[in-house]
Design a protein around this nucleic acid. Structure first.
Lengths: 159, 159
DNA sequence: TCTAATCTTGACTAAAAAGTAAGGTATCCG
DNA sequence: CGGATACCTTACTTTTTAGTCAAGATTAGA
């Protein structure tokens, strides 16, 4: 189970754009340089984000990229979905749409796990915005800590 | 973000072995046939599981595989870790061990997300055993439903 | 209008994951 | 003891994903 390179760098690019002020833009070269990836690669990622409406771009000299919406209105689950189809894919669902048709129809014991984990991950991500990832006294950690202590309670209750 | 084919099929193989009684074994051919994968591929997976001590095998005719421990003593997080290094990998941690050295030391905004999600996923998985995946009236769903409603609460509280 | 800066797009190359094949070794049974 | 069955191990092929390159298209400003 892993997050793809595309997801990771795509998210990083958005984080660069998040602190920009009104009318400010970052060029592809600037973004790529800061991330240590090629401009070609960064261009591809930003094109995906642009197409999905997460960033907007201006062409020509003095052009560049910026967020299409406020940083506190962009949630992690949407970002991941844009960069990689869905927040959690498997053979179970990736080929055939959304967890329906499957070779093991009927006796597939792992379906509930995939579905359940998918939901756990999606909820955790839906609770985090780009804006939250910026602060130095990261309130992300408190958010995730809350979720963690919740599942710890759950595990305890079952035992 | 996705679960690899190796994780998915490895887990499925274990689920086949779980309901076996004392002294019963399944052969590679049987396992592969039921999953619709080649015996070569199944052999590879079971070898990994064997090496990790999750299944035990007997060679020669009348041989085969069975679980090395009781099904209710094998947890999902251990299985995934065995099949794929860790429950959740990213460029952040996969190369360099465990979330320490990173190109973006200092100003890496996504580190807390990776760490947090890793923990959420691991806890969710640690709360589920192979045995739980067998029942027809799957109590996995209740377990996961509890975790889900927990994170829903959390999201609500923050808002 | 010309030019330089910048985004856009598709084809190409390289790396990683998944899957396959084949020879080796242990066990049973006649 | 010898053949048949089934696990063990390494090396290879295919497929998928990631990353690069280069030419085209668009805009701002002189």
């Amino acid at each position: 189970m892993k997050v793809s390179a595309q997801e990771e760098y795509g998210l990083r690019c958005l984080l660069q754009l998040a602190p920009l002020g009104e009318g400010e833009y970052l060029t592809l070269t600037q973004i790529a340089e800061r991330e240590g990836i090629s401009t070609a690669n960064a261009g591809k990622l930003l094109w995906i984000l642009n197409k999905a409406g997460l960033v907007s771009s201006i062409r020509g000299t003095k052009g560049g990229y910026r967020l299409a919406r406020a940083a506190d209105e962009i949630h992690l689950d949407e970002i991941i979905k844009v960069l990689d189809e869905d927040v959690l894919a498997s053979h179970c669902n990736s080929y055939t749409g959304i967890l329906d048709a499957c070779v093991h129809t009927g006796n597939c014991g792992i379906r509930p796990v995939i579905v359940g984990l998918h939901d756990v991950v999606r909820r955790a991500m839906a609770g985090i915005t780009l804006a939250q990832l910026l602060g130095t006294e990261s309130n992300v950690e408190t958010t995730l800590h809350q979720i963690n202590s919740m599942s710890r309670e759950t595990a305890h209750r079952r035992a």
